[in-house]
Design a protein around this nucleic acid. Structure first.
Lengths: 214, 214, 214, 214
DNA sequence: AATGAATGAGGTTTCATTCAT
DNA sequence: TATGAATGAAACCTCATTCAT
């Protein structure tokens, strides 16, 4: 994720750092690592390449991060924090269920596309993480899924979503599609993240639209 | 993928091998490699571990496969051959467009679930393949997607699918969901592959069902 | 070696430090280093572990000690000072040769047992010291041995020790046994240092007792 | 231990290897490692130095030994095997208790002096061994000590050794002296191992000689 | 068809030490 | 007197691959 690429702006205080002073070392390392992991893969990227790209030495990296693994974990944790916060804001808003689910759907696509490198790395390399950290990450992600499933169930109870669709399965279906954006979406392609988000939201709501009478 | 686990049977000559004679070495190697790559990842699995699991020596492996990379490629090629053949049979059948699309959708889910390890490895490790082989694999997969997109467009032209959905995007959406099965589907869980396939097909057809009049 | 654990009391000014004020940083460092070196070995203990155990930072350590090596040297120097001073007092006393040798023998065992960590470190790690410092330490120790050998020779000249035993060899023999106390003696075991000292002294004097007539 | 330095000759089949064919790689590695560990210490000797000295590559070393640690362990195991075998032969001979104890005492000194490097390494670096292997080594050594203690107790029961000396303590005392040979004995010095052994045996038997009457 | 010893490059990590503050 | 970020060299070890047999 390039510096300043965060969407909200408000979430990331670093975005306001003066151009004069250099970015702090840990951030430089995360930025470099993210790009390289996405380009070449985690296992194929050496620590030496990361520190070279960040313009520091290996010692400096190990001063801030316990291991190469830690770098990977931090990349995950960062994107999860952002996505969870945004999702919760949307879910807890005062809108109708349909509007809230649509907002969540659009937003997760936009966020994913904005942090496409992180997402690609996430699903490609999570299995390389230390089991303990892997468990933490999985728990966070499960929490995210649960929250959206509850929203769908709320709509089903309220009668605005059809009830013969498993909320669980719909969530897995939809997020599967979202998590795979990295394998085909191109930022320099014809569609903006927002556009893809709208269309994905349409498809999700199609699946929950009450059955045509008769 | 366990020996003899292929669905069709006809595709896989090994399925007819007598129980008495041991499985040939190349197959033993592919089986072992598939399991280990899915469990631990490609980069994290050493050639030594693979040959140990297959009960042969390194020399034997290099007799049959040019490199560790080749093993990965063969795993891909094998699953792609199976999936493409099955998809083409379904697409070219004499059924209605809807029935053909549904058959394809159910089948790709069933096949994916049957070869879940291969699929997991595929999306996790394709970037580690030699660029040339990677290109081959991508071309094959693109061919698969194209074929399904054409089927959808055929339905749109015929007026049985709504035309305000991008066939391209729907394909990416649907296969995204399918390719992510590996991250949540459990063979020992509550749903069979067939059941998931039916539901996924429902969700896909929901997205293409002509808009309710009004 | 715990603070205040020195036997004589008079040798160690730190023993008189008021309980209220915290122990000075250099002492805290030596104490921590001694324990860790004895537990884990010199090379296996990092400077970071030492300063953590002492509750200070690396900068503080390098303020007081020139290097990690220096810490080791100080541990040696400290125990050598104590042992040499005590030995000389005993050797120069007004007692008989036998009584003086016995006193020295008992005392070196008691001192060794009291400073068991230092002794263990000494013989395990002296070779890791900078050659110059190693030479200093060896010279000090040789001086100690010489002094005891002279005492034995004095007894041989005086006819109270048998003369067909090499004083040199007896010294090496006896101190070898003493220096190996660390590999079996346990402070929480059945024998006090004093008891072991008495028995070791008996064994030493056995070896020098004039031959039975006949 | 230099090739061909084994005492018995009969124990070591490698001693009969023709001069024409080169010594096997594992042996070359052990020989080089022993010399370097004794000279510079285990932690201070790099694997690179060892393989350079042995004229092989690192890969070759790791083909035969699991770790640098393993090399250390093998050095221990080798000397322990030799010493235990020789001790048991002497203890189980048909001689008198005194003669058997004397033989053991002389032999352990001769063996120690012959394998002086191994012994030095042993007591200096055992604490660096993996705890499991350390336990194995300790058990072996304890077995050795026990056997000698039993021999002394046999002599005490038979009335040929004085009973007011603790057999346990005498063993610790004597072997302490033996294990410290490395810190003063020089092979190019005035005394042969045999000579030192005889004198050490005298000192040991002095300590067990029945008390002079009266 | 198969072995397994050997290679050699490259990987991650550790660590004593320095220095601006 | 003390901090702690940063260095850079060197450590141990892994591993895909080759090749004589």
């Amino acid at each position: 994720m390039a510096p300043g690429s965060s969407i909200g702006g408000a979430e990331d205080p670093a975005a306001q750092v003066s151009e004069n002073e250099p970015e702090p070392v840990p951030q430089r390392l995360l930025t470099a690592a993210t790009r390289l992991f996405a380009e070449r893969g985690f296992e194929t990227t050496s620590v030496q390449e990361i520190v070279d790209a960040a313009g520091v030495t290996k010692g400096a990296m190990y001063h801030y991060f316990g291991s190469k693994d830690d770098l990977l974990y931090e990349i995950y944790a960062r994107v999860l924090r952002v996505q969870t916060a945004r999702m919760e804001r949307a879910v807890d808003s005062a809108e109708s269920v349909q509007q809230r689910l649509r907002a969540v759907a659009v937003d997760v696509v936009v966020t994913t596309v904005t942090h496409l490198d992180d997402t690609v790395i996430f699903f490609r390399s999570m299995h390389l993480l230390h089991p303990d950290k892997q468990a933490e990450v999985r728990a966070q992600r499960r929490h995210y899924h649960e929250r959206v499933r509850q929203l769908i169930e709320e709509g089903q109870s309220a009668g605005v979503f059809r009830t013969d669709r498993s909320a669980e399965l719909v969530v897995d279906f939809f997020f599967g599609a979202v998590h795979h954006l990295g394998s085909w979406y191109r930022r320099d392609g014809p569609m903006s993240g927002q556009q893809v988000g709208e269309q994905f939201a349409d498809l999700l709501l199609d699946a929950l639209r009450p059955e045509p009478a008769g």
